[in-house]
Simulated assay, not measured.
Amino acid sequence: MVSAALLSLVAVGCLVAMALLHRAKWPSRGPYTAVITWQALGLAWGVSTIGALLAFGLSSYRLGAAGGLLALATDIVTGRLVLAELAQGVQGVLHLLAVVLAAVLTLVLFYGLVSSFVHVVRVRRRHHDLLELVARDHPDVPGARVIEHPAAAAYCLPGVLRSQVVISEGALAVLDNRELAAVLAHEHAHLRERHDLVLLPFSSLKRAFPRVRLVRTYYETVALLIEMCADDQARRTSSSRELAMALLRFGAAGPAPVPAGAMAAVPAGAMAAVKEAEPGVVRRVNRLLRPDDELSYHAGAVIMGASAFLLASVTCLWHITI
């Protein structure tokens, strides 16, 4: 029961830490560190919540979450009526309910991850095939395909064997050469660092809990941080002002449709209603034109160490037998 209480405390602590991280100012100074912190908190929350339910539901084994789960699996394979024994009495019903909830939560999270991956792969495959028909190479846009569309759009389609950067004729019309180079560097950063895989766990959570507004809010926060990571990579070859001007030109040109599974330089609708919607592009532009001091190495090391310690602690708590 001690392990169940400790794991529950960790799960609640992760939720509190997520709320604080969402409101914190430092993530824009160190987006890479912030993204890893979000990943650690999300993973720790899921593992600790499932572990707490299992540790409570299988407390009769006195083996902790991991040992109790293994013992339960062994007893089911050998044909023992463990579930019937667990359901004896009010406390037994609560134990059985906790095990069922742990199984349901695990299946929901697994379903969200698998279904998101399959959906994205299918959509990207169809769009890749479509680009073979409608997109063309352009001498002024090396490493990208150009589509004839009046709206300003630039996005990338990640893939294992065929990754592509796509830009529209409308974008070519509003960007000068330096701004275009900055946008292309931003998109190539997404492909090179596989930001789509970084975002996949959060998109799977959004798919698993589509009606939970908090999950959607945290997904958008991480997505913005990933865009900042790509901005930082683009600044290595282009100036911050050129990239900021490109983002503003995209916003001024109006929202452009972006296919599902793609990562766009400016998501559709990101510039609309700054006071009502999340001003993600505005925050990126302000960050580029008026950059704060980067997160110090020591602060980043402390945060990364705390994230690793959190995951290690959750793993150890799964094996506590008291």
Results as ranks from 00 to 15, higher is better:
residue 87 A to D: 06
residue 15 L to K: 12
residue 176 D to Q: 11
residue 215 V to Y: 02
residue 174 V to C: 01
residue 88 Q to I: 15
residue 224 L to T: 13
residue 102 A to C: 09
residue 21 L to W: 13
residue 45 W to Y: 13
residue 113 L to S: 12
residue 100 V to Q: 10
residue 269 G to Y: 10
residue 177 N to K: 13
residue 179 E to L: 03
residue 151 A to C: 01
residue 69 L to C: 05
residue 69 L to F: 14
residue 316 C to Y: 12
residue 59 S to Q: 14
residue 79 G to E: 05
residue 98 A to Q: 11
residue 74 T to M: 04
residue 70 L to H: 10
residue 35 V to E: 09
residue 278 E to M: 08
residue 315 T to F: 14
residue 186 H to P: 00
residue 198 V to D: 08
residue 116 S to K: 06
residue 160 V to W: 14
residue 58 L to V: 08
residue 48 S to K: 07
residue 129 D to W: 04
residue 227 E to I: 06
residue 203 S to I: 05
residue 22 H to P: 00
residue 195 H to T: 06
residue 23 R to K: 12
residue 114 V to S: 04
residue 225 L to T: 05
residue 270 A to R: 01
residue 93 V to Y: 07
residue 10 V to T: 12
residue 23 R to S: 07
residue 68 G to S: 07
residue 248 L to A: 10
residue 162 R to F: 08
residue 276 E to W: 08
residue 164 Q to H: 10
residue 196 D to F: 09
residue 36 I to P: 00
residue 258 V to M: 08
residue 145 R to T: 01
residue 192 R to G: 08
residue 255 P to V: 06
residue 223 A to E: 15
residue 80 R to G: 00
residue 168 S to D: 08
residue 213 R to V: 10
residue 128 H to L: 15
residue 74 T to Q: 10
residue 149 H to S: 10
residue 101 L to G: 01
residue 53 L to F: 09
residue 212 V to N: 15
residue 318 W to C: 01
residue 36 I to V: 13
residue 184 L to A: 01
residue 300 G to Y: 04
residue 104 V to F: 07
residue 61 Y to L: 04
residue 227 E to V: 02
residue 94 L to K: 02
residue 93 V to G: 01
residue 102 A to V: 05
